[in-house]
Design a binder for these strands. Structure first.
Lengths: 240, 240
DNA sequence: AAGTGGTCTAGACCACGGC
DNA sequence: CCGTGGTCTAGACCACTTC
């Protein structure tokens, strides 16, 4: 007989939530032992396999570490490598606040190469949004974002000075971004860019071209960014 | 009664291996249906949970996709983003072969900052290996690697012209590299570097500082690299 | 309707770690 | 030694997809 689900939430998920609540609430700190499989099974009145499933899921998400013969322990807080973050989120992570200045916002329909990256027809209409990113009162980056104009009607009317493009897409259009593929290289500042970023002409900049995908692998944003290398570096974790 | 293990290999692993063999052998192509849980349980004479465990593991590794109500299918081959690769492997992936020229190989013992990154005492002895990377007869990158001299005695005597540092560490010292943390930014070529990489002075270069970890999170290699941005770009995948 | 994956039970034995 | 996680059984019902 399967356990009655009080609210449609699977038992293993309820167990996970209970543990996460204790971790996030500070009751359990990194290194602390989590209830063992057998304890969880008893407490939540489920079978051992179900308790086990709950812990295995948390381990996969990097929230706990399991050591055979020893127990299950709260994992040290993850450093967020290779995490897709908005400009706002990146600054917040470092304890900073920033702002953006919109350099231009327009609809373009003759950018076939960029349209192709968004899987749009060659002359598909796109919203082009050019923003100067400012952190700590110094210009930081110049980012140009392209999104399909037909998929996001009225986006040009949203004030993007205060709220991130990511959250607008999420809240107003129900689009959740999932991952991004980036190509990164170095380039020298051309005169116009040097002016805007307040660096000498020819100064080295990080150049990033990013295709941001929403669920089902749909390419949603194309972002082209130039970053002052004296104020910005990338952190990447690679795996063997 | 637990299933007798013929050779110490868990049943779920044997099932995974059997499926992977069919995929890698070409008998199953991306999109093809894999045996269902019930079929696997019958064929391999295991319980449903065990067959399920096998498929769940393959799904986590990205080898199969599971669709409720439909079945389990071979996943399209993954593009290897964010994968830690040696210089040799990177070139091979692009169908190229390359070579290296050792610029210098020495033992240093007064590089406290780098020693710290390898968790060594401030004046710990390290092998410093400076190599010019050449691909398609053009210089490509200048890489300087540091490893603990005490942990890898005799490493300076190994000819690293033909064989990668990664494989030497693996084969001769039993050290398996697991992941790396990288910091990336852009810089301008100083005169000496410009000379060696055959680019104009001040040309933009990608600069990469890498700490490569072996198992148990032990920092093993510190690598400092300068890459010609006209011949090299990074591909990164980020996740939300 | 038939088949699939998703969840779950109530047990069992094994391998390992720490005391 | 005892408790831990790792593997496994032989069933069950549910939710979903496909036909």
């Amino acid at each position: 007989m399967a356990q009655v689900r009080r609210n449609g939430t699977p038992a293993y998920k309820r167990i996970q939530d209970a543990i996460l609540k204790r971790i996030d609430g500070g009751a359990l700190k990194p290194g602390d032992a989590v209830d063992s499989e057998r304890e969880l099974a008893r407490i939540h009145r489920v079978s051992l396999m179900t308790a086990r499933h709950a812990l295995a899921g948390l381990e996969r998400e990097g929230r706990v570490e399991r050591r055979r013969g020893a127990g299950t322990f709260v994992a040290p807080p993850r450093i967020h490598f290779n995490k897709l973050m908005s400009f706002t989120e990146q600054l917040a992570m470092r304890g900073l606040t920033g702002r953006s200045k919109t350099v231009s916002a327009s609809v373009v329909e003759n950018e076939p190469e960029i349209a192709a990256r968004l899987s749009l027809p060659p002359h598909g209409r796109m919203i082009k949004l050019e923003r100067l990113r400012i952190g700590g009162d110094e210009p930081f980056a110049l980012e140009t974002a392209y999104v399909s104009a037909d998929d996001f009607p009225g986006l040009t009317k949203v004030p993007l000075e205060r709220v991130s493009l990511f959250s607008v897409l999420d809240r107003d259009f129900g689009v959740t971004l999932v991952h991004a593929d980036e190509e990164i290289d170095a380039t020298a500042a051309d005169p116009r860019t040097a002016d805007q970023l307040q660096v000498p002409r020819g100064a080295p900049l990080l150049r990033m071209r990013q295709i941001i995908y929403s669920s089902h692998g749909k390419p949603t944003i194309y972002m082209f960014g130039l970053y002052r290398s004296d104020r910005h570096s990338l952190l990447i974790r690679r795996f063997r």
